[in-house]
C-alpha cells in the first residue's frame, strides 16, 4: 500500500514535470503568462487601496486582511491550476472519451487525468501570493500556517472542480455548469466575509467552499485557533473524499468515444 502511494506520487511529480517542460518550450509565452498574471492580480489591489482610503473597515476586514484574503485567493487558485490544471477541463475529457489512455494505466485514473497539464499563468498567482506574504511581514510560524492552509484550499478548489466536472457522466454539456461554479468560487473569494449574510453565507461554507479556502484561513492567520485550523483540514478531507466518490460513481457510466484525438 505504502509502495503504491509512493509510486503514485512519483508518477504524479514526473507528470507535472513533463507538463511544465511543455509550457517552457515557448519561453517567452511562458514568461509573459506569469508576468501578466501578477500584473492582473496587482491591479485589483489598487482598487482596494482606493476603497480603503475612503473607509477604514469593509465587511469587518482591515486592509491587511484584504491583502491576506487576496494572498489566499491567489495561492489556492495557483496551486490548484498549476498542479491540477486538467481538473478544470475534466468535463471535456469525460464527454469526448479522453479518459481511455488513463484507464489502461495501472495508476489512479483521477490523479493521472488531472495532473497531465499545468497552467503556466498559475505560477504568476503563486508568485503574487508570495509577494504579499513578503510585504505582510509574517512570522515564520505564520508563513508555515499560510502554506498549509493554501495547500488545503488548493486541494478543496480542485475537489470542487472534479465534482462539477463529474456531472458530465450524467448530464450533457455540463461543462457550462462547471465553469460557472468554478468562476463563482473565485469571485466570492475576493470579497470580505462580512459583506455576506444569511443564505449566501451558508452557501459559502457549504457548496461554495470559500469559507474553508479563504475566510477561516484569514481568521486563523489573524487570531490563531487550533479548532478552526483542524476544521479546514477536516473540510479538505471531506471534499477530497466526496470528489473521489462522485468521480468513481460516474466512471461506471463512462461511455468513451471513437474520436480522433491527439494528446497535445
Amino acid at each position: 500500500m505504502l509502495m503504491a502511494v509512493k509510486n503514485q506520487i512519483k508518477v504524479t511529480l514526473v507528470s507535472v514535470k513533463y507538463a511544465l517542460m511543455r509550457e517552457m518550450l515557448n519561453k517567452w509565452t511562458f514568461l509573459m503568462n506569469v508576468f501578466f498574471m501578477i500584473l492582473n492580480n496587482a491591479s485589483f489591489i489598487l482598487q482596494w487601496i482606493v476603497i480603503y482610503s475612503l473607509k477604514q473597515d469593509i465587511g469587518g476586514y482591515t486592509f491587511e486582511q484584504v491583502l491576506l484574503l487576496w494572498a489566499f485567493t491567489a495561492s489556492t487558485f495557483g496551486i490548484s491550476h498549476f498542479f491540477f490544471r486538467k481538473a478544470y477541463s475534466l468535463s471535456d475529457t469525460i464527454t469526448y472519451g479522453k479518459l481511455d489512455s488513463y484507464l489502461v494505466q495501472p495508476k489512479n485514473i483521477l490523479i493521472s487525468a488531472i495532473t497531465s497539464e499545468v497552467d503556466a499563468s498559475a505560477i504568476g498567482d503563486m508568485l503574487y501570493a508570495l509577494i504579499i506574504v513578503l510585504i505582510s511581514k509574517l512570522t515564520m510560524w505564520q508563513v508555515l500556517l499560510f502554506m498549509i492552509l493554501s495547500i488545503c484550499g488548493g486541494v478543496i478548489l480542485t475537489a470542487l472542480a472534479v465534482i462539477l466536472a463529474s456531472l458530465s457522466f450524467w448530464l450533457n454539456k455540463s461543462d457550462m455548469i462547471a465553469d460557472t461554479g468554478n468562476n463563482m468560487t473565485t469571485h466570492f473569494a475576493t470579497y470580505p466575509e462580512g459583506i455576506f449574510n444569511g443564505i449566501v453565507k451558508f452557501l459559502l461554507y457549504t457548496i461554495i467552499p470559500v469559507g474553508f479556502t479563504n475566510y477561516i484561513p484569514v481568521s486563523v492567520m489573524t487570531n490563531f485557533d487550533w479548532k478552526l485550523t483542524l476544521m479546514v483540514i477536516g473540510a479538505t478531507a471531506f471534499w477530497v473524499a466526496a470528489a473521489f466518490a462522485i468521480f468513481y460513481k460516474g466512471l461506471r457510466r463512462y461511455s468513451s468515444s471513437n474520436l480522433m484525438i491527439a494528446k497535445i
Partner: peptide
C-alpha cells in the same frame, strides 16, 4: 494501442515517453 488515439506525449521525445511509461509501470 489505439490507432485513432494518441497515448504518447506529443511534446516529449520517444525516449522521455518511454521513461514516463516506465515510471507508470513502476
Amino acid at each position: 494501442v489505439f490507432g485513432q488515439k494518441e497515448q504518447l506525449w506529443m511534446h516529449l521525445t520517444p525516449y522521455d515517453n518511454f521513461k514516463f511509461f516506465g515510471a507508470i509501470y513502476d
